[in-house]
Simulated assay, not measured.
Amino acid sequence: MKLTDFQIGLEFMEGPFWWRCTDIGTRSIAAIKLAEDDTVWYAGPPYMIEEVVLDEARIADCHLTEEEHVEAALVEADTSSHPGYPHEALRRMTKARLKSRAYPRTGMFRFDRVWSDGKILHPYAAHKVGEEWIVSFYLPFTQGWGEMSETQFIALPIATAFDIKRRAAQLANPRRT
């Protein structure tokens, strides 16, 4: 969906949940998750449940029907060049993420980054060394692991679908890199 598709009161899907739009900004919307059994929780504003801000990336993953949501997931699966995550990598990342609950900026984990050489870095955890946060990342195309300072990591550009396709092409045709 696009920002212009929203109006206050509109119900939509994002991820596995239904939401109701409660406010519209210039680049984001606010919404409440429709997960309560009693509709009294949805009375407002102000709301007794948390209003969540959905940014441009999350808005793009919103759908008006379950069918649209499933179709979009199938298209993504059929057209994405992302290699996915093997079971053992997911297990390692999940364990580390549970240990890094003290990290204050978990929104940073939402976005892969791209190195200047085209490598895609998937952040999954962070730990503190002295006064500095160190970000742990996974390299999905080579199944490698790494770490770097948070400052260095967030300075890297956010990976786009184009970056992922370019990385897949680099590895398919190594002489063209």
Rank of each mutant, 00 (worst) to 15 (best):
G107D: 14
V75T: 14
T94S: 08
A31I: 02
A77T: 01
S80G: 06
D112T: 00
M108R: 05
E36I: 00
D78Y: 10
S116A: 11
Y42M: 12
R97S: 07
M48A: 05
L64K: 12
R58Y: 03
M48K: 11
T94D: 10
Y42W: 15
E71H: 13
G107H: 11
E66F: 11
E88I: 13
Y42V: 12
E50W: 06
D37V: 06
K33N: 07
G44A: 06
D38V: 07
Y103M: 09
Y103T: 06
K33C: 12
E67K: 08
R113K: 13
R92S: 03
S28V: 00
S116R: 08
D112K: 07
E71V: 09
E56Y: 05
M108F: 02
P104H: 02
K99G: 06
P104S: 00
A35W: 09
T94L: 06
P86W: 04
D37C: 12
G107S: 12
R92L: 09
V114F: 03
I29R: 08
G118N: 00
E76R: 12
E76F: 03
A35Y: 04
D61Y: 02
L54M: 15
L98S: 09
V70F: 14
L90V: 04
A77S: 05
A35D: 14
V40W: 12
T94A: 11
G118Q: 00
T65A: 06
L90G: 05
R110W: 13
D117C: 14
Y103H: 09
I32D: 01
L74W: 13
R105P: 01
I32L: 10
M48Q: 09
Y47I: 14
W115N: 10
S28F: 05
T39H: 06
V53Q: 14
I29D: 02
A102Y: 05
R97I: 01
D112E: 07
I29N: 05
Y42T: 09
R113Y: 01
E76S: 01
F111R: 01
M48H: 03
A31K: 00
Y85N: 09
E88N: 14
K119C: 06
